[in-house]
Amino acid sequence: MVKPTDILKEEPILEVRNLQTSFFTEKFEVKAVDGVNFAVPKGKTLGIVGESGSGKSITSLSILRLIQNPGKIIGGEILFKGENLLDKSEAQMRRVRGNEISMIFQEPMTSLNPVYTVGQQISESYRIHQNIGKKEAMLRSIDMLKLVGIPSPEQRVKQYPHELSGGMRQRVMIAMALACDPELLIADEPTTALDVTIQAQILELMKELQQRLGMSIVMITHDLGVVAETCDYVAVMYMGKVVEYAKVADLFKNPKHPYTVGLLNSLPRHDIDLGDEELTVIKGSVPSPDNMPKGCRFAPRCPFASEICVEQLPDLEQSEDGNQIRCWIYTDEWDGDPEVKVNG
C-alpha cells in the first residue's frame, strides 16, 4: 500500500496513518473517520475538502485528540515530528495543544468565550505554555493583535468578543492560535461564516503569516475555491475516507476520482457563463451512516459504478502522476466500461 508521504516534495511535519474515529450510539457505530491517510508538508498547506458528513472536521479534531464522548479514536497513528500523538499522556497532549499545534474554528461568533476579554483569552495561551506573568502576557497579546492587523490593539484587548465584528473575531482567534508560535495550524472552515470580502482579508492574512512565521497549515474547507487559492496539496474526503489525494495544480487540472469530477462540475462559477446549460449534478445524496455502502462508498452515486465497485472497497493507490486515488477505474481489476478507464 502507498504511504501518504509519497507524494510530498517536502519533509512532512504531520503524518496521519489509517486514522479511525467512531461515534457510538446505542444502536450502531458511526464511522465518521474511517481509515484516513494524509501528510502535511513542512511550511506548506494541505487542504482537506469534503461536503458535510465527509468526516473532515472530525479528522481535524482527532489530530488534537479533542474528540468528546460518545466519539472515540479507535485506531491509527498521528505522527507529529515523528512521534505518535495517540501514545502521549493527556498532560503531554496539553503541551502540544495551542503550543506546537493550534487550531482555529468555523464560527468566530461562538468560538470565543463571551465572559472574558480578548486580552484575557490570548494571554491565557502565554500563561499556560510560557509561564509568564499577567502583565507580560497582556503586552504580548497586544503585539499579537498588531500582527494580525487589528487597529488600536491597546484598546481592543480590553474588549469583549461581542463588541467585535465577525472578521475581527476571526483575527483574534488567529492571534490566539499563533500566540505560542506553533509549527502547525489547523484551520477548520476559518472563513465559511464570513462575508466574501472579509474572507479575502483573512485568507490573505493567513498566507502572509505563513510566509513570515513558516508554519504549516491544514485547511479544512468545503470550498474548492479556497483550496485553489490557499493550498499546496489536497485530500478530498467522502464518507470518512480520502478518495483522492493530490498536488493542488493536478487536482484541478486533471481530477481523477468521479466524486472530485462531479464536485467540480456541480459548482456554479461566477467567472464562467454556462448560458442555459444545466449544471452537471451528482445524483442522489450521501447515504445515512447506518446504511454505509459495503464497497466503494461513492458507488451508489457514481455514474460509472460497476459490479466490483458495489462489492469491494478500493484501496488508495498511486496513479501515474504520483498522486493517490481510491477508485477501481484506475486499477487492473476494473471490470466496467473500458472506455471509462481510458478517458479517466
Binding site: 472578521g167 470580502t197 472579509i198 483550496v227 485553489a228 487559492e229 495544480a249 462559477r269
Partner: peptide, 23 residues
C-alpha cells in the same frame, strides 16, 4: 475579485482587490 475560483492557474495570476476594514 474576492471570490476564490476553483482553478489555481487563475488564482495565482489574479489581481485581487482586498477591501480594508469592515462594513
Amino acid at each position: 475579485s474576492a471570490i476564490p475560483v476553483p482553478d489555481p492557474d487563475i488564482e495565482t495570476k489574479k489581481e485581487r482587490i482586498i477591501l480594508q476594514g469592515d462594513v
